[in-house]
Amino acid sequence: MTDTTTRFRRMKDLPSTHLLGTGTPMCAGCGGLEALHEIYDVLGEKTVFVNAAGCMTLLSVYPFTPFRGSWLYTAMASAPAGAQGIRDALDILREKKGLPPEEDLEVVVLTGDGAAYGMGLSATSGAMERDLDFIYICYDNEGYGNTGQQYSGATPHAARTATSKGAHGFAGYKKDLFSIWAAHRPAYVATVIGSEPLDLARKIETARSLKGPRMIISLAPCPTGWDYDPRDSVDIGKLAVKTGVWPLKEYRDGRVLHTKVPHERLPVEEYLKKQGRFAHLFEPERDETLLDELQAKVDVYWSSVELQGG
């Protein structure tokens, strides 16, 4: 559980004014942008964001940037290596060239799931193994969103994407990136979602208080890629948590803790049926086999959590 000394005890402790500039080209209702602006409020402007190719590359399109701090776009595979170069350079400037501490920056990698789960995984693993002092934020909209939502390593079973349009959707299963990251034993790993801002703020606050690799995955409901009305973004996010599809948890000191356990879990189909990408599970007729399978996977996950005591 996050620190009891948190400055985020209740919703009213959340910031009411926001740092991230408006005017970005992100889609209306973007769940990733919602999470990012909540995160940015906690991280603050003494940050340099190191970005990998994805939707959010378009946050800074010449001559506009929404960041009050700094930004560097790298490439799809190597944002953590860019963070390495900047962090090392800042350390060298502090140690050798008299850069005052107040000029230092928190180095923050910002990537989508395409980079985080796939092409960039080797660079992320390398940064963790080198114990790089940085924060990594993955906005996970479960597909290559910026190119029109083809399936990625983060796409859930049965979801329809631009490259899995068959009767049963995506045949593969979502990769467990949280566990892959945690296996590196970094300082911190957490899942968050913009629709749970208090949980998110506490975790970012925790991440800020630590040194070393601090890894955050935010599920990013995506009206464009998941095919739903933008107004439903927060509701879908809340359902992801209440149905148990998106467990909110954190890894620290070798232990995994669930920060919000949905004891009365809603049926998974409550989450699925709100999204066009799962419509084939309900129409023209219900695909009971697949629905049962999806529910069973969530149930198995949570029973293992209960067995391990939360």
Partner: peptide, 12 residues
Amino acid sequence: FRASAPESQAVA
């Protein structure tokens, strides 16, 4: 990259 002088480098 400095706290007092924000820069966005290598933008799209």
